[in-house]
Design a protein around this nucleic acid. Structure first.
Lengths: 109, 109
DNA sequence: TAAATTAATCGTAATATTGCGATATAAAGA
DNA sequence: TCTTTATATCGCAATATTACGATTAATTTA
């Protein structure tokens, strides 16, 4: 298989899982942190900052872009990436709902 | 390959990515929601609630347990699963740092 | 126009994930 | 003890992910 059965879940569950999967890699977490830190929008210097090859970085950027978390605009020869504010707040809302729904009161387990 | 280069990232980045990967599947999101909703700790009725086979559910539970997000205690014949409060708050902190570090002020992209 | 720079894409190898049928394990009840 | 019930594990097939060398595409500069 290797194929996720998305049809038996809600659109919200599938959407959140797509965003989480995009973030579920140390390189992509590092990329997001870099983009946020260097608020001038980072370009291809990610290859220098992280220790991964250029095609690998490019692929990780693509996945973040596919999930909608980041967006890129052409800036001359290089490309300027930044957080997509809309999707970022969608992520915050979705995660907030899930994480916040648990209240540490149960004495069950 | 298929193998993540964890050695070039920080422990925090790797740890967060492990927790996110555990959550990055609609079935596992659904399982977490069920566990939280039925605060009496859910057991094997997940198989009925979700439309997945028993071995598949068992495997998803294992991955959530491996990431530390849930814990299970034997309750007679069945097993009682619940959220691990410590790891849950670790996750909230880690995600809060990452998500909160972005301020929507940039006019860059 | 030619060279340089930057980033995407192609192709491939190694490994991981997903899903499930079949089977094993372990505790409870007859 | 034998059966039932609840889960875990094994093994497998299909697919996805990760990483990167080689190459391509696009833009800027000489």
């Amino acid at each position: 298989m290797g194929l996720t059965k998305t049809e038996i879940f809600t659109a919200e569950q599938n959407r959140l899982s797509v965003m989480l999967k995009a973030m579920a890699h140390p390189a992509r977490i590092a990329i997001l942190q870099q983009i946020i830190k260097s608020n001038t929008c980072i370009c291809g210097n990610l290859v220098d900052e992280l220790g991964l090859a250029q095609p690998t970085i490019s692929q990780h950027l693509k996945e973040l872009k596919n999930a909608g978390l980041i967006q890129g605009t052409i800036e001359g020869v290089s490309i300027c990436y930044c957080i997509n504010p809309t999707v970022w707040s969608e992520l915050q809302t979705g995660l907030g709902m899930l994480l916040g729904s648990y209240k540490d009161i149960q004495t069950c387990c």
